[in-house]
Design a protein around this nucleic acid. Structure first.
Length: 556
RNA sequence: GCACCCGUAGCUCAGUUGGAUAGAGCGUCAGUUUGCGGUACUGAAGGUCAGAGGUUCGAAUCCUCUCGGGUGUACCA
């Protein structure tokens, strides 16, 4: 692709002495392997008919590319279509599984995602962010980035006040010893129930609300004084530990690994200090007793960073987080992945940071995704107890998988991951457990199965493949699709959109099935060539699924 | 009110740095196929790309407005 781009750019310069940012695309197969519309772009500038320009360029291209190209044709209003020679295509295809465009070579990249709140339950949205975040981090790492996966979460804040208040109600006061009565396996559920109770009380009762606000302050005090001894502190630290154990178990189940966890209690002091410092320099300002950043001059809105009670809000904690990430990694790129709801909020935070640390803001990319809805129109409501938990989604997949006659965590997890990644990031997604585990259609298990089947063919043949030469129609078509893999990865990493990989892998499988339908592999005179294609196909499936965090076992 | 995100076949989605007849899967209908793993392949039907203007040789893609769904909008995270 880049080669073609280069060749074209130089040809355009030679023939017309024009500088153009031209685009080489992968057209519909009937038109060739590569196409460009540069002649159409130049037509107006040069005052010539596009087809005439195309003819001149085509002639020059044929000369420049020599035997690497089989055909350079003009089509339609003035497209130049390029068809590679078998030799050139074979070279590309053979290298495809191992060619990784080094887009991020030498760059330190911090990816932050998942961001669960301690003392609260993990819901479907956390599962979505974690899966998408992993995929993005994997792709960046494969493209040469030195990736650091970090996680952020609220171990202080009003939600903790609510849960702690309810916990003490449940325990009948500040009795840390009574926590021992909660069975090991029920810690997370019990805390989730407490959160719901605290949440309910906060909105139903003025008295409870006042107590919760007070409890919240006490939690901040625990951190300020590094209190590990008081009964209240003991309850807090024990329950916080329970939360983190629960997170760890969940990440282990879905195969996520974070090298660092930034609790808000840790980023908070850094954030407060930074905001105070910049208050004096006029970046932030006081207003009604709070410290705010005024976004209106930038087309944004005003947000509170430190409230009138002197407590930092999420904004200040996030400022602290960004400063700490910088201090820890001196990243070239920082990628933050969250729900869409955070979009405008994050713009304000980053705009404020841009005022005193412009390079940090410039190096930060905020990627946002939609929400998870369940097929059938069930929505998630975060404020009530009827939320869809992360485990509910995983269990639904496992159940559907069992119903479909399969019983493996590898395929049900692959099903969920694939279903979540296959849609473009941005809009809400609809999750249908049955569809996700199906062996038919665009699903994770379909591709896992496709991979296992290809491996099985290779095992049956019991030998390695031969050269890719004199390709027939079906072989060539598959080889062409195989050769596209590195370009797809590059697109996915440039846009930070891993769904491109899903779309490609599925198209690749379709292409393979068409080939497989028409071409006997084992025992055929062309076995050697075809085995090579099968091997390349299997390798790409494995590599691509790996990028998505999906296992591709040789047998299922 | 203002800002932002989203709105493509019955359903779930690709296609969105403007380009060649808008593509898949599921579902529906009709064929082919038992040869390498539970199949798969071929074809048909199904679309005013939410709507209306505009820019352009060319718009699902860019601009404006309207409609619909969602989120955010000062001391929650």
């Amino acid at each position: 692709m880049q080669e073609m781009n280069k060749a074209l750019t130089s040809v355009v310069q030679d023939v017309f002495a024009a500088d153009v940012t031209l685009e080489v695309t992968r057209p519909d197969e009937q038109f060739g392997d590569y196409a460009t519309n540069v002649a159409l772009q130049l037509a107006r500038r040069l005052g010539k008919p596009p087809r005439e320009i195309a003819e001149q360029l085509a002639t020059a291209l044929r000369e420049q590319l020599g035997d690497r190209v089989q055909e350079v044709a003009i089509a339609g209003p003035g497209f130049i279509n390029l068809r590679l020679s078998d030799g050139a295509l074979a070279v590309q295809a053979a290298a495809a599984p191992h060619t990784k465009p080094q887009t991020y070579a030498g760059q330190v990249v911090v990816t932050e995602y998942s961001d669960p709140s301690a003392f609260k339950v993990l819901h479907a949205g956390h599962l979505y962010t974690s899966i998408v975040g992993d995929a993005i981090a994997n792709v960046v790492a494969a493209m040469g980035g030195e990736v650091h996966r970090v996680n952020f979460g609220g171990d202080v804040g009003l939600h903790v006040g609510k849960t702690m208040w309810a916990i003490m109600q449940e325990l009948g006061g500040e009795h840390p010893d009574k926590l021992a009565e909660i069975p090991d396996g029920e810690h997370a559920d019990w805390m989730a129930r407490c959160y719901v109770k605290g949440e309910q009380a906060y909105s139903d009762s003025e008295d409870a609300k006042a107590e919760i606000i007070d409890t919240n302050k006490r939690v901040y005090q625990v951190h300020a004084t590094d209190d590990h001894d008081s009964p209240f502190a003991q309850i807090y630290w024990t329950c916080r530990k329970w939360s983190y154990d629960y997170f760890d178990a969940f990440y282990a189940r879905i195969g996520s690994h974070f090298e660092k966890y930034y609790p808000e209690s840790v980023t908070m002091p850094v954030g407060v200090e930074t905001v105070q410092e910049q208050l004096e320099k006029g970046v932030y300002e006081k207003s009604d007793g709070a410290i705010v950043f005024r976004g209106e001059p930038y087309g944004l809105h005003t947000r509170v960073f430190i409230n009138s009670q002197g407590l930092p809000t999420y904004e200040a904690k996030d400022v602290g987080l960004i400063m700490m990430k910088w201090a820890d990694y001196h990243f070239d790129r920082s990628i933050i992945i969250t729900d869409n709801a955070q979009m405008q909020y994050m713009e304000v935070v980053l705009k404020s940071i841009e005022q005193f640390a412009p390079e940090l803001a410039q190096r930060t990319t905020h990627v946002t995704h939609g929400r998870v809805k369940l097929a059938g129109g069930v929505k998630m409501s975060s404020r009530k107890g009827n939320i869809v938990r992360a485990v509910d989604v995983l269990d639904a997949a496992a159940d559907a998988n069992k119903k479909a006659g399969h019983d493996s965590e590898v395929s049900s997890l692959g099903a969920v991951k694939y279903a979540f990644i296959k849609s473009r990031i941005g809009a809400d997604i609809v999750y249908d457990p049955e569809e996700s585990v199906s062996l038919e259609g665009n699903s994770g298990p379909y591709l896992q199965y496709a991979h296992a089947r290809a491996r099985s063919v290779l095992a049956k043949a019991g030998k390695t493949g031969g050269e890719l030469a004199d390709l027939d129609e079906h072989e060539r078509s598959l080889a062409r699709k195989i050769s596209e893999y590195p370009e797809v990865l590059e697109k996915a990493v440039q846009e930070l959109m891993p769904h491109h990989i899903c779309t490609y892998l599925y198209e690749l499988a379709q292409s393979f099935n068409r080939f497989y339908e028409n071409a006997q592999v084992v025992g055929d005179p062309r076995e050697a060539t075809r085995l090579t294609l099968v091997a390349l196909y299997a390798d790409i499936l494995k590599d691509g699924l790996g990028m998505l965090g999906i296992a591709a076992p040789d047998r299922m």
